[in-house]
């Protein structure tokens, strides 16, 4: 298997790893967002709590949760490694750089956006993952009730909305970029991939951002 390790450790291989883990995390976002969107049914969280109960007890989902953490850690590790290595390739910086003339700012700032997302994620995991997995409280105090409680704090709401904006820009580059890294650039498919990527990058983070806002302003009960 030395051949595989050699290939994955090349400049192209590191990007392939970034792309595959990124697409896997994108698939997770879709599941996470769809399930959470059940709160908008405005049924007092009945459907949402049922979904959360299923996700928390189903053995396949629980196994996938471990795979998800592994994928996330690999994405972070590979991203940091690429960022550090790439930085070292230009030891003397330019005095003047006109980046806006040839590329989008968020495509050049994936490391920064990723770091912001990581900071957000630590807070987010502490709020909800820690609550639902590592404490005994689901019987009388549901995840829905916990969301209601957490999103009463305006600072938390603002941080969550900022986190969603970071996610949107990270996805706006990352979604289509992943396909390019895999080698999937084709006149027949690339325009569709870019369109789907742009829609995904707006709709998913917007739906996520709407959740804390909806709770804070009592738009759902």
């Amino acid at each position: 298997m030395a051949w595989l390790a050699k290939s994955l450790n090349s400049s192209l291989g590191k990007k392939l790893l970034m792309a595959i883990t990124g697409l896997f995390l994108i698939s997770f976002l879709l599941v996470h967002c769809s399930l959470n969107a059940l709160i908008f049914l405005n049924d007092g969280g009945v459907a949402f709590n049922e979904g959360a109960e299923f996700m928390g007890t189903n053995p396949i989902i629980r196994t996938m949760e471990i795979v998800l953490f592994a994928g996330l850690l690999l994405h972070i590790y590979d991203g940091l490694r690429l960022w550090l290595e790439n930085k070292s390739k230009r030891p003397v910086a330019y005095a003047k750089v006109d980046g806006a003339a040839n590329s989008k700012w968020y495509s050049r700032s994936m490391g920064l956006l990723g770091t912001l997302l990581l900071l957000f994620l630590i807070l987010h995991l502490k709020h909800f993952w820690y609550f639902s997995r590592l404490t005994e409280g689901l019987e009388d105090h549901t995840l829905y009730a916990e969301m209601q409680a957490v999103f009463m704090n305006p600072v938390v709401v603002v941080v969550y909305v900022l986190g969603c904006i970071s996610l949107g820009y990270h996805l706006l580059h990352g979604f289509s970029s992943a396909f390019q890294s895999i080698g999937w650039n084709h006149p027949k498919y690339t325009p569709t991939i870019k369109t789907i990527g742009a829609i995904f990058s707006i709709v998913i983070p917007a739906a996520f951002a709407a959740m804390p806002i909806a709770f804070y302003f009592h738009l759902i009960h």
Partner: peptide, 18 residues
């Protein structure tokens, strides 16, 4: 060619399109 490119000390691709 990829091995040589890496050995020369060029960076990886961020797909910025610059």
């Amino acid at each position: 060619m990829v091995a040589q490119m890496d050995e020369e000390g060029f960076g990886a691709c961020s797909n910025t399109g610059a």
